[in-house]
């Protein structure tokens, strides 16, 4: 494929953005910031896809990942301590091993990219990528596409079952207690015995 120097410059900037943002994900002090850094990395990759003429896929990256990372940020705030990033945060294990594994993976893949020869078979002239994708999805590969839809439906049902408040055997959070303030101590934040049952007040937190 021939392209102008501007495409090369744009690619270079976007590539640097994608890698730096991806690296910052694991180096920032706030989980919300981490998920939005990941979103920046996705957006940069989506823009590169658009440079590669995959116009539908690039735009699909934008909206899919915007919603996904938004949900992720919400879960971050719900589950993690220190959501606002006021304290330094570094929660890692097997750190050295992970760095080595990441570097080794990069070098092996990079060596494959550099030293193996791939067929040069660029996009044919006059190809309409969006149209060809649509015809493929609702034509020859319809079974795959529809299976993905069914799997997504099954996921939705499974997720609701896994995370619903009430299951067949009673309330989901039954028996779940927050950790004590000191090791082995009484659970923190529990109402005094004899007060109204605590389980139902969960419903009011969401507003």
């Amino acid at each position: 494929m021939e392209h102008s120097i501007f495409v090369d410059i744009a690619f270079l900037l976007l590539a640097v953005l994608a890698v730096v943002a991806g690296w910052r994900v694991f180096r920032t002090d706030s989980m919300v910031r981490a998920s939005f850094f990941l979103l920046v990395s996705f957006i940069a990759v989506g823009a590169i896809m658009m440079l590669l003429a995959a116009e539908y896929l690039g735009v699909a990256m934008f909206f899919m990942m915007a919603v996904e990372m938004m949900v992720m940020a919400l879960f971050m705030v719900m589950f993690m301590m220190n959501p606002a990033g006021l304290n330094p945060m570094m929660m890692v294990h097997q750190h050295r091993l992970s760095i080595i594994a990441g570097a080794v993976a990069f070098f092996i893949l990079a060596a494959m990219a550099l030293f193996s020869s791939f067929p040069a078979d660029p996009l044919p002239a006059g190809l309409d990528p969006v149209r060809s994708l649509g015809h493929e999805m609702l034509g020859d590969s319809m079974l795959i596409f529809e299976s993905a839809g069914i799997v997504l439906l099954a996921t939705m049902i499974g997720v609701v079952v896994l995370s619903s408040h009430r299951g067949r055997y009673g309330a989901a959070e039954e028996g779940s207690v927050p950790p004590g303030l000191e090791p082995g101590g009484d659970p923190a934040g529990q109402p005094e015995k004899g007060e109204s049952e605590g389980g139902h007040e969960h419903h009011h937190h969401h507003h």
Partner: peptide, 20 residues
């Protein structure tokens, strides 16, 4: 492909090293 390799490498590091 080099860019993809870099992203995969960083991702592998994160998936192995993060506790949460």
């Amino acid at each position: 492909l080099l860019l993809a390799a870099a992203l995969i490498g960083i991702g592998l590091y994160g998936a192995l090293s993060q506790q949460s």
